[in-house]
């Protein structure tokens, strides 16, 4: 069980590292929100899921694990909605998505 939990945690950490790199490296608002949304949902599900498994099967506190499970469920519902709302606000505010500058034009 411990090995499985550690694997889940490592998997979540890889997601978090990749997502952080993505937020730093991607070129514009919309593409940066893409890894940010991934982080909050999948990274959190793996790490907090590992926590819930640890508490349920190593420490034996099933009720606490259930509460952590509820946190996962609600974050899974609300976090993508928040990302969607931010993107929607960007579109409404008139922010143009980034496009790759074509080689013919001069890059000002």
């Amino acid at each position: 069980m411990n090995i499985f939990i550690t694997l889940l945690l490592i998997c979540g950490l890889i997601f978090f590292t990749g997502g952080t790199l993505g937020i730093l490296r991607f070129p514009d608002f919309y593409s940066r929100l893409h890894p940010a949304g991934k982080l909050d949902t999948f990274g959190l599900v793996t790490t907090v899921g590992a926590l819930a498994l640890y508490i349920a099967f190593v420490q034996g506190l099933f009720l606490t694990a259930l509460k952590i499970g509820l946190i996962i469920v609600f974050v899974f519902i609300t976090s993508p909605t928040a990302t969607h709302a931010i993107v929607d606000a960007g579109v409404r505010a008139g922010l143009k998505p980034w496009t790759k500058p074509s080689s013919g034009e001069d890059q000002t």
Binding site: F74, I77, T78, T81, H84, A85, D88, R92
Partner: peptide, 18 residues
């Protein structure tokens, strides 16, 4: 501000009772 956002409204409906 013209929100006509089904996703945000539905999530709000779902989450407010909780």
């Amino acid at each position: 501000w013209v929100p006509h956002d089904l996703i945000v409204k539905t999530t709000c409906r779902l989450i407010v009772p909780f």
